[in-house]
Design a binder for these strands. Structure first.
Lengths: 131, 131, 131, 131
DNA sequence: GTGGTCTAGACCACT
DNA sequence: GTGGTCTAGACCACG
């Protein structure tokens, strides 16, 4: 459970936690039913306000990535829930569109983008192999 | 020059303007040296405060997408400037990484992402074909 | 943190703030990671609108002189970033050229200019001596 | 009489004319009593609004760089008038101070600045030799 | 008419 | 409490 939180980024701290938990789950670093550190533990580990960690956990629970069992703690959900929400899909499509345009201005070629995507999926694929 | 500004999005209004101008330039809808609507014009067209449009224009000028000539107006820059800024590149790489993870949770397959990218580049490529 | 803002100058207020922060950083009066006054604090201190201070801070952040951490405040950047931007260099060269011509008309001699430059560098050098 | 006017610069057009006339006079390219093009001539030559040229000429006359003789035209003044205005001197000193700080951030070394000044004075010196 | 600057005042997200 | 965004309205320099 190593977090890499950077307050200087303009991504909110709680959002960074969410992203990294989801990333670790997607990559299989965090396994189903594995226990997460408590809010207090994590907040002292990454030197952050407990409320911020709490907010991240609440959002992760809402997204069904983790579940909280009263008195026992928070755990990774059994299975990755795929939302298949059309709104979410459209949002991602738009974000990708903007990313292509930004790449254009940054001088990044299509091949580079495609290669990156392949690599990112390889990272996720490692998880599937272990199944 | 049709803008599609949505105040309900959590993307700031001025950011939406920036994105759409950059998109239109990248797609060749806006040609080099073409005049943009004046701050007042655009602000009344999309029913927004002039200061907000002004902020967008100033940021676009900083990115060298447009140039403003005092007392005359703002114009698309002669050539698209590609920054080749390593920081910008890394930021895009990270954003793409996060996008892949989000796609994973949204149930979007790799093939879909790759197809979208191809399509987006076709939109940009149309500009080159006309040259 | 003493600012000397003069609304009568034709230099914009936000530009005066930028200049003075950069000056204090270059002279070592403001140290890396030091906290700047909050937007509201500074705006009430120098009797100016908060938006104007905000604009100055945002530009300083863009120039990587300061970093802002959400909900916590703004801080001097760890290291002074030297841009080495050819455009910026050329702009300074031109400004210096104009300044020499203006000096000519103002009856300022070359030796005076050279002496002033030496003095200004002594002010900056004091910082290096303390290292 | 070649002018190099760039509307894209954020220096006002009339200011650019003033600067270039003063530069040409200081370098001896324009000699005392030499006739300047009329407002209409110059405005059509550099494709600019006549009012803008007029404004530049008025300011140059105020600074006693040129003189207008009714019905005959405008001419370079007999001698370069050196103002020795303390306010002007202080303004130049401040501008130089800011320029040194900007150089610091742009990664320009003191030696480079000094060398540039020497070069600029060599350009002016050519005039003195011809006297 | 053009953009640039500034003020006053409001609301919001983040910590 | 922190900065970020937006509105409304004003004044100014420039062309």
């Amino acid at each position: 459970m190593y977090f890499n939180i950077d307050p200087k980024k303009n991504v909110p701290l709680y959002e960074q936690i969410i992203q990294q938990v989801k990333e670790m789950v997607a990559k299989g670093i965090l396994q189903p039913n594995e226990k997460l550190p408590s809010v207090r533990e994590l907040s002292s580990q990454i030197v952050i306000n407990p409320n911020t960690v709490s907010k991240a956990y609440q959002e992760l629970e809402r997204q069904e990535v983790i579940v909280t069992i009263r008195g026992r703690g928070t755990f990774i959900n059994d299975a990755v829930v795929q939302s298949n929400d059309p709104k979410k899909t459209e949002a991602i499509r738009e974000a990708l569109s903007q990313l292509v345009i930004d790449s254009h201005y940054a001088g990044i070629e299509k091949q580079t983008l495609l290669k990156w995507i392949e690599n990112f999926y390889t990272d996720l694929g490692g998880k599937n192999d272990e199944r």
